[in-house]
């Protein structure tokens, strides 16, 4: 398979579940391990944070970071699942990866996630639009 086997050996104990595809590795980590995983991917492996995707699933609110390893073209996608849908909270990786500042602010306003340790926890896109509904990307928004 691809070259992400070394990564799996080193970080294997922190990975709860994984999906392997050619050039793509999606894996789930706990909230307390995300900082360590992000630090390893960004500072040790030299990955670049492309962006992150937040979505609502049946299990809870999910945040999926996309780290691109540009030398090999591999994507490492650590996933954090928050089961508390009413008040989802997770650690912010912005203190480690400065490029995550805007996307974490966007995810926060679109799905109502609180990123602990974010240097500027303000809305990014809907700041001027007061009439926009809160958390617009949440399913079951009528409840």
């Amino acid at each position: 398979m691809a070259d992400y086997q070394d990564f799996l050996k080193i970080m294997g104990d922190k990975i709860k579940s994984k999906i392997e595809k050619p050039q793509r590795l999606y894996f789930e980590v706990d909230n307390e391990h995300i900082l360590e995983v992000a630090d390893y991917l960004f500072n040790t492996l030299g990955c670049r944070l492309s962006t992150a995707t937040a979505k609502e699933t049946y299990q809870g609110i999910e945040v999926l970071y996309h780290f691109s390893h540009d030398k090999t073209g591999i994507y490492f996608c650590p996933r954090v699942v928050m089961t508390d849908k009413k008040n989802p909270r997770m650690n912010s990786i912005t203190p480690i990866v400065r490029g995550a500042e805007w996307i974490e602010r966007e995810m926060s306003e679109m799905l109502g996630i609180t990123f602990e340790g974010h240097p500027k926890p303000e809305p990014l896109l809907t700041r001027e639009n007061k009439e926009v509904m809160k958390v617009p990307l949440r399913k079951w928004r009528w409840q």
């Binding site: 999606y26 962006t51 999926l64 691109s68």
Partner: peptide, 19 residues
């Protein structure tokens, strides 16, 4: 499933993720 697509646009990498 899940898919990632990207392309080098004139300004840099465009990224799309689809579930």
């Amino acid at each position: 499933g899940e898919g990632i697509g990207r392309y080098e646009a004139p300004r840099g990498e465009v990224f799309h993720y689809v579930q």
